[in-house]
């Protein structure tokens, strides 16, 4: 294969767009970790179920993926609220290890329920075939829309967290939970809002993932580990940094795939994260030490 600038550009663009979807998945994980101190591996299970939901909606001719997504996002927001009231209500008080075991358990349930109902097969939605070309780089329309939506969600979330009072309150309780309680912020309610937002992000990520990649039940487990890896890179509770880290990982993956193979790219990613955990557990973008 020729490594012409346009091929490399193609890979980097596609990688960045894929990466921004990873980033959207990771942001939800990071948000709930910051505010409610919940390490929610099951987050990827929600993404997976949205993917299957959209698939069913499209296959049965009910709706276009984006329309299905428009329904899924508010629906997941509400579900997230409910989940934080019930399944996750007592999780923030558990030790890290117990949380990991608990949410991994939930992830297994979600992943293999999907396998039970939908079978282990690989699914994908046919693409529209529309593509855009500029400077030798050809991009599927779906990929562009996906990237735009992911980036849009990251910017919107960033604006919400830095501009609105509620967003600031969410950041405040992530920053100093006890301080937030003592000054009268209702951290329990804020945790619910954060979980709801995190679910809504999962819905968005699931919807756009369906339009651009193949998927299968085990994708749930893979995405969970990947989201964790990205969030570690971004510094765990730094939501926007998680998005940036997602984009980086996407580009890294694409480049590695181009130069070697997808699995070598993944090996390199995990080896890199392994080193990051050992050397800079606080993430790449921050100087503050971990607790």
């Amino acid at each position: 294969m020729e490594f012409s600038p346009s091929v490399i550009g193609q890979m980097l663009f596609t990688g960045a767009l894929m990466g921004s979807i990873y980033g959207a998945v990771a942001m939800g994980f990071s948000l709930i970790f910051g505010v409610a101190k919940i390490i929610n591996f099951a987050h990827a299970g929600v993404v997976l179920w949205v993917m299957y939901g959209v698939l069913v909606a499209v296959r049965s001719g009910v709706a276009h993926p984006y329309v299905a997504g428009l329904v899924a996002i508010p629906l997941c927001y509400v579900i997230g609220h409910g989940v934080q009231r019930t399944l996750m209500a007592r999780v923030s008080a558990m030790s890290d290890d117990m949380q990991i075991i608990y949410t991994f358990g939930l992830l297994l349930v979600l992943t293999y329920m999907a396998q039970f109902f939908f079978g282990p097969d690989v699914h994908f939605l046919p693409s529209s075939g529309l593509a855009v070309e500029f400077g030798g780089v050809v991009l599927q329309v779906e990929t562009i829309i996906a990237g735009a939506l992911a980036l849009g969600s990251a910017l919107a979330l960033h604006a919400f967290l830095s501009r609105t009072w509620l967003g600031k309150a969410i950041r405040a309780s992530a920053d100093n939970r006890r301080g937030a309680t003592l000054m009268g912020l209702d951290v329990v309610r804020l945790s619910r809002v954060a979980m709801a937002l995190s679910f809504a992000l999962a819905a968005l990520a699931g919807t756009i993932l369906v339009t651009v990649t193949t998927f299968y039940p085990l994708r749930g487990l893979e995405l969970a580990v990947l989201a964790f890896v990205i969030v570690v890179l971004g510094g765990m509770d730094n939501v926007f940094a998680s998005f940036v880290a997602g984009v980086l990982i996407g580009m890294f993956e694409a480049l590695g795939t181009l130069l070697f193979s997808p699995s070598i790219a993944h090996m390199a990613i995990y080896a890199m994260i392994f080193a990051v955990l050992l050397v800079r557990p606080q993430g790449l973008f921050r100087r503050r030490a971990t607790k």
Binding site: R171, D175, N176
Partner: peptide, 10 residues
């Protein structure tokens, strides 16, 4: 509060 309990990264 005692110890101020601010939000240091805000």
């Amino acid at each position: 509060p005692e110890g101020r309990e601010l939000f240091p990264s805000l």
